[in-house]
């Protein structure tokens, strides 16, 4: 003997079953993926304007005339006489080729920092300057692995460009003495830091250039989606990172992330008293 069953109740219960929380791995994949996504252009000027076929034709014709006129002007002035336009010098390309990982190259002089504002991090024991108008986002706890491996962690002293499209982070962490091997900086990056934070982690040397911070030698490494500089001073690693690919449109006005990071570290100085918290927080070598 079976009791009558309510199909709608069964369907409702069946529909409610199932996962309801987006897994952390998927969240992380989305957030990491943001750095590699080209963004659509915002059509602010044309917004709200009526667009009919005639106005489209006129706009297209104006663009063609402008481009054509500019081309003729450039061609007519190329390479002749003292009034000629300068020929563009070959740019140093640091864009990754399909078959090779990205390579870092020393770029031109740092940006002009005359108007930059100095920020002091007593937590991490340094001062550093950032462009005027950038927002300061102070760290709310001491940086440590693996808890703060995510680039959007809140343990770094961060600086956000107006609109938030570019973010530069700076922090420091004591290094476990066992990690002080022959090449401690690259060893720590390759073994302890990179696998949790960024990619690719192989062939670091081919993507590294030597830099200095407050007289201390360090390494500037170009990763696929970010550029980071590392300085090991008295058993403590100081890191400055810009979380964008070097050729990302959002950093074009700063001449790319390599030049931006170089400029940041050119303003960086260690505090005489060291950081407020100097306890070792980095895990040992794996």
């Amino acid at each position: 003997m079976t009791q009558p069953r309510d199909p709608d109740a069964i369907i409702a219960t069946w529909l409610d079953d199932g996962p309801i929380d987006l897994p952390a791995d998927t969240r992380r994949a989305i957030v990491v993926g943001l750095r590699t996504q080209p963004r659509a252009r915002r059509m602010a000027i044309l917004r709200g304007m009526p667009v009919n076929p005639l106005s489209r034709f006129l706009a297209a014709a104006a663009i063609v005339l402008a481009v054509g006129g500019l081309s003729i002007f450039v061609l007519s002035n190329r390479g002749s006489g003292p009034g000629a336009l300068p020929t563009p010098s070959p740019a140093v390309s640091i864009a990754p080729s399909p078959s090779a990982p990205p390579t870092a190259s020393p770029s031109a002089d740092p940006l002009d920092t005359a108007t930059w504002k100095t920020y002091v991090s007593s937590r991490y024991g340094f001062s550093i300057a950032h462009p005027a108008g950038w927002a300061e986002v102070p760290a709310d706890h001491d940086w440590a692995l693996p808890a703060d491996a995510d680039w959007l962690n809140t343990a770094t002293e961060s600086f956000k460009a107006p609109g938030g499209a570019v973010r530069v982070s700076a922090w420091s962490v004591s290094i476990h003495p066992a990690e002080l091997l022959d090449r401690p900086t690259l060893t720590w990056i390759a073994n302890a830091y990179c696998p949790l934070n960024t990619t690719p982690c192989d062939r670091l040397e081919s993507r590294t250039v030597a830099v200095t911070m407050d007289g201390h030698p360090g390494s500037l490494v170009q990763f696929a989606n970010d550029t980071q500089a590392f300085f090991l001073v008295d058993g403590r690693m100081y890191v400055v990172a810009c979380w964008r690919p070097d050729n990302d449109p959002s950093v074009t006005k700063y001449s790319g992330t390599i030049r931006l990071v170089q400029t940041y570290i050119s303003t960086m100085h260690l505090l005489p008293g060291g950081p407020a918290s100097a306890a070792p927080t980095s895990p040992g070598p794996s």
Binding site: L15, G18, P19, I20, D21, L22, P23, T26, R27, I30, V31, L34, R35, R39, R42, L152, K160, G163, G164, A165, R167, W243, S250
Partner: peptide
């Protein structure tokens, strides 16, 4: 919309669960 990926990450936190629940079903 202005390019702040931290703000977008917050939107992922706010809407991610419901989106996942809908997509799974």
């Amino acid at each position: 919309r202005d390019g702040d990926d931290v703000a977008f990450a917050a939107l992922v936190d706010l809407d991610g669960d419901l989106c996942y629940a809908i997509a799974y079903r």
